[in-house]
Amino acid sequence: MTRFGRGRLRRILLGAIPFLVLGTLWQMNAVYRWLAPIHMPPPAAVWSAIFTLQEGCPGLLDALRQGSGCLLTNHILSSMGRVALSLLVGLPLGIAFGVLAGIHRRLGNALEPVGVFANAISGIAWVPLAIVWFGVGWRTTLFILLNTVFWLVFFNTLLGVRGVPRVYEHGVLALGATRWKVITQVYVPGALPSIVTGIRMSMGFGWRALIAAEMIGGDRGLGFMLFVSAQEYKTEEVFLGVLVIAVIWMLTDRACLVPLERWTIERWGLVWRPS
């Protein structure tokens, strides 16, 4: 246990070195002005951009209530809310259709090319058409995100269910299981490695698509903030936005996806197959 703890500490300390080096270089640039502040704002300016953006925000509660002065937290909550909503809707739908298509051979054969095509144009390419349909605003960006999440989860679930060895189904059927039990006790857990891959991919592609969609066809959210700040040449706000996006992504990955993987796939000794 102590050995494990020490190894972990070592990794954290080692991993911090490049960040420290980059941070030092960044700060040195602020002092020696190798690059102009408009191109590379000093760390202090990025830090104070938080407070400039949050100027009209009296406190945490107000930020959570999305008060009008809390610009930064509003953009963050708006983007994250859309991610949560699209997961809440897209995940169950994608898994349900994926399982259905996975166990029904004909349906699967018919829907697989649809999934391939939808995944090929998912994300950013839908933005112009979505703007035509929904106008500039949150509905367009939500549509883009949902579209990305659904098809990736659907497709990976389909592949995962198809990959579950038939003998598991037979074994459970021979014990007297109903069709529904076979789905919940064999297909869904058996497809889980692939489903988790689908969720990870949909988060990877989904965040990118959301940011791009907010830049082009949004009226709020982190991508929108980046775009507006860049147009006004407020580089420190752009830097801040980029850092926030990276931190949010890493936190969701660490806090949700990695533990999910550890608790299911690794514990069951299943093999992760890249689809």
Binding site: V167, G171, V172, A174, L175, G176, P189, G190, W268, L270
Partner: peptide, 29 residues
Amino acid sequence: GSDRGVVFQEHAILPWRTVARNIGHGLEL
């Protein structure tokens, strides 16, 4: 159906259930 039990050639026990939960699966169903 559960009147005929089958032991398969390959390992048909479910990887996501423990030994006890695998053995009790039929009773559970």
